[in-house]
Design a protein around this nucleic acid. Sequence first.
DNA 1: CATTGTGAAGCGTTTCACAGCC
DNA 2: GGCTGTGAAACGCTTCACAATG
Lengths: 236, 236
Amino acid sequence: MPPHRARRIPEATVARLPVYLQILVEQTELGVESISSDGLAELGGVNAAKVRKDLSYLGSYGTRGVGYEVDYLVYQIRRELGLDHDWPVVIVGAGNLGQALAGYGGFNDRGFPVAGIVDIDDAKVDTLVGGVRVRPMSELSQIVASRNVSIGVVATPPASAQDAADRLVKAGVTSILNFAPVLLSVPVGVTVRKVDMAVELQILSYHEQRRASAAAAGTGGQLHAVPDEGRRGVSA
Amino acid sequence: MPPHRARRIPEATVARLPVYLQILVEQTELGVESISSDGLAELGGVNAAKVRKDLSYLGSYGTRGVGYEVDYLVYQIRRELGLDHDWPVVIVGAGNLGQALAGYGGFNDRGFPVAGIVDIDDAKVDTLVGGVRVRPMSELSQIVASRNVSIGVVATPPASAQDAADRLVKAGVTSILNFAPVLLSVPVGVTVRKVDMAVELQILSYHEQRRASAAAAGTGGQLHAVPDEGRRGVSA
DNA sequence: CATTGTGAAGCGTTTCACAGCC
DNA sequence: GGCTGTGAAACGCTTCACAATG
């Protein structure tokens, strides 16, 4: 029996594993070979108990009294996240955002090479963005099939986003990262994650607004009891 | 006593209010004047009880047996989120992403005009992106002060992100939207939200990987019991 | 009588606290 | 002695279910 039958990892933990991974890789580059839950917690901006619980879902890979071996943990997290191989992605929409994403190193570097970027607008086709040639929508299926793409990125205007998603799904994509501010409707079995920058700004606006009205009300009111620590604020 | 003493709204609710707001605005444009929690839930991809609970934090603005008046709800959500006025933002970093953000309509349109975009690299200064001229870092404070900016966007490479945040804070910004894959350290009282696209892709990778190993194991295995509904998948 | 508003139950996540182990 | 791994408590969010009500 393998060390761990595919356990179910809580979504909240899955969302933090990439953060730990990034930190661990940085530590490797700095020559650090071992790290404690405390150390990792500090670097990740979370608390140590959470780190230990999170890592415990992967298995018992730490050494009591010592900590975790950085290399080994990197390996295990990568394996669990399916990052032991690259996941080519296809981007639909070559506007501002699509172009930025195609050119953004963070994609290519971290295991998500851009297999292609397509646009319905023929005027955009054949222009170069970030070293990638924009291709016509008609080639989407072929890109997905030939490069074995399972992750698609929707970077179109809102009005075209559902159409983009439909095409991606039809082409065989089973995960979508959606940057358009609309709810995508997809078949069961397809995973969608949405990143909406306007929503993020509106959440910040809420906090700003609260601060403002708090200040207006009780002048003596401290927002949070300041925990004698120079830095670190609300991080949500 | 005013209808509502500044109640504390759960973070989860705050994160959904912008989504409801968007939908309601769209409905207004379609001429819809009234909407039920069921209708709003459907359009927002959540369940009706959640909609009602969420809206109840704003006050009792619905009518039993009828629903919610769209206009009035828009007004109340805007007020609660502090969207009754614009929040000019300043972008630090005029690389791929910074440029895309400056040019992205979704920012300007939805109440967050770009007050300025700055970069440390003098080679980028004075170039035009999205109709905005890139300005030198030295002008950051002045932009923040003169346009009364309280929200900053960090769109620099990871290595410069902390420096960018420090400068924003020193200039007087109290909320930061961080696109760099690093944990920003800021004084208490400053709110940071992080958007990390690599993290999003890695979460999708996890789900893809699970699907793959599930398929490899029990061939008969359906991922989720398919709830006889044509569309709608995991949306996290 | 359709639909809201909301206590109360249910559930997933976080945190505590300490036994287990190197 | 120091640090992990983990039951159990605490917490916050979601969902249920129904009384309140226009």
